[in-house]
Design a protein around this nucleic acid. Structure first.
Lengths: 333, 333
DNA sequence: GTCGATCATCGAATCGCTTCGACGATGTGC
DNA sequence: GCACATCGTCGAAGCGATTCGATGATCGAC
């Protein structure tokens, strides 16, 4: 493995000059710059990450903490993680994967050993044990989701309140007078996961605003549970004509259950989903939906992190716009 | 941040002694050992990852290359990734997440900069561009899946050939005389992804062995495609009584399609799935299945990697046993 | 033509750890 | 009681980059 000294010798310059060519932190004559770059290429030089980290006090690695709990749609997590990796690479950083099972210790470790420069935490709960740790760590961090006390932290998420509201707005405009929200499993609400409660709040408030009758139904992500909720809904609210589903794996089963109950979508019932566009497009019928822009959140989270690393000021809270796309599952009545 | 020198001073020993206490590479009197450990705790010392990597030529990080292509069930990838992280931590290593979009360059980079000590590659194809690169890299690596030319590489995977065969064995024993395999999307076969073709081979061979009529049907992971394949199957093979599904997202739609076509499972039709147990258990009816032990594969992959890092010999190929669990979706006829 | 500012480059110190050889102090065998 | 291993610890030399101050060259202004 070639080292910087080899490059320097090959190019007839000092090692520091090579370093400056690479970092651009001092001006270098174009001629020597080219010569150095040439040597780098010829020798196939790649700087040693450890040495670099030691000398510069920067590892160019960010940690990504992914949830491994139940009740959260895995493909969304994965899309998000992927977009973080891609965005990080665009900023010349790599991503270290951390899971929850090490608990808060993982954060302490990667921060304490200077293994990473910054941290992204997904699926933040209202009262999250990681939040105080992040505060004391003094490494830059970005949270996906909003804890109850977000003071001094940088948070980003889809605007779930607006998402919940947008669904109701749409249904209300179409003339629906009773709507229901089929949501995440009960344990997700019990954990106080922000996105679930915020959706509910937006949904409920908007319904009140429109004078529309509304109810909320947490639901396990199983086909059986979907059937149970649907039959309960139809029994208790015969006047129900609008349904919002915010629970990805349930979308198929819920549609099936309505179909089996003899309710056709969108003729008898309008359905709006909060889910990735891809899912909404592939359903039958294609679903009117508010999309979850995982890629966008990932990209922006990394952007915020890089800004913080650069010492630039960033907003405490970033809400990603909720956009409703009308497809074939909603109809006016 | 405390450094090793601070610990040494606090404990009244030389820095090297602290290092040896930590690494255990030389014997230390129990008494000084305790003293050093105490100082470490008091000062909250954590070794600097970069410095360690520079001096020891080991970063204690392994790279995990995850696929981002379509046609592969995301939750399985995620479970696998998670188990790799957990297993790696048990060996005192961290996991760097690499996606495909950097192509082969990512591998070259993390290896060339000594950012990682070893590499795990998921979803290896028969003719995979990463394989030659891994060979030239001379970092220890483990592949999940088998490329066409696996010479000198360490590979591990579920024994999909046995899995495909086990399904047919089971159905044949139950007296079924015509079976069909609903498999991955066509593009997965086209890519020559090993697991798909191996399942097919096992399926076909076993059928021949049992004198059972068999056909294979690649299928997109959409509800519409499932319905199409099912009606095609029923039309062309009226004597069909056994179906194997090897395509996770399709399981629900396929069951629904049969139901809608008036075929009841398991009365009219026996269905075996190749999928994670969790999925099989939650289906209605619960599916007889060959499970995909993602956790087991991850754990063993890391085990192999650590053995290679330690210089121990490891087998070139490791096949994880395919175990069929009988549930409610198969019946003798 | 001289002086100070600017520019391009160099050399040396530094980052925090591991590891190797050295060296007293003990232990062992005869 | 002596020679020789063995054991526990120390000190110093790297590991391969970055960065800061210094230095000679170049330049414009007067």
């Amino acid at each position: 493995m070639a080292k910087i000294e080899d490059v320097a010798r090959h190019a007839g310059v000092a090692p520091s000059t090579v370093s400056y060519v690479l970092s651009g932190k001092r001006s270098i004559t174009e001629r020597t710059r080219q010569r150095v770059l040439r040597s780098i290429e010829v020798l196939g030089y790649q700087p040693h990450a450890g040495a670099r980290a030691l000398a510069s006090n920067r590892s160019n690695v960010v940690a990504l903490v992914v949830p491994l709990r139940t009740g959260i749609h895995v493909p969304v997590i994965m899309r998000f993680a992927t977009s973080v990796v891609i965005a990080a690479r665009e900023h010349d950083h790599d991503v270290l994967l951390l899971t929850q099972n090490e608990g808060v210790g993982g954060l302490r470790r990667v921060a304490g050993t200077s293994l990473v420069d910054a941290i992204i935490v997904m699926d933040v709960e209202l009262r999250d044990e990681r939040v105080p740790v992040l505060r004391e760590l003094r490494l830059p961090s970005v949270l996906i989701g909003f804890p109850a006390d977000a003071d001094g932290l940088t948070c980003i998420d889809l605007d779930f309140t607006a998402a919940g509201a947008a669904c109701v707005d749409h249904l209300a405009e179409l003339g629906h007078r009773r709507v229901a929200l089929i949501g995440s499993p009960p344990e997700v609400y019990a954990r106080g996961t922000g996105f679930a409660t915020r959706t509910t709040a937006g949904f409920t408030d908007a319904a009140a605003r429109h004078g529309v009758a509304a109810s909320v139904h947490p639901c396990e992500a199983t086909s059986a549970a979907a059937h149970r909720v649907v039959s309960e809904l139809l029994r208790e609210h015969p006047d129900l004509t609008g349904v919002v589903v915010h629970n990805e794996p349930l979308i198929g089963p819920v549609l099936a259950a309505f179909r089996e109950a003899g309710r056709s979508v969108p003729d008898d019932l309008s359905v709006v989903a909060i889910c990735p566009d891809e899912l909404a497009e592939h359903a039958m019928p294609a679903l009117t939906s508010v999309s979850i822009p995982a890629e966008e959140v990932g990209r922006q989270a990394v952007g915020l992190l890089m800004a913080k690393l650069a010492g630039d000021p960033v907003p405490d809270a970033t809400l990603i716009d909720a956009r409703l796309t009308v497809r074939d599952s909603t109809r006016s009545r």
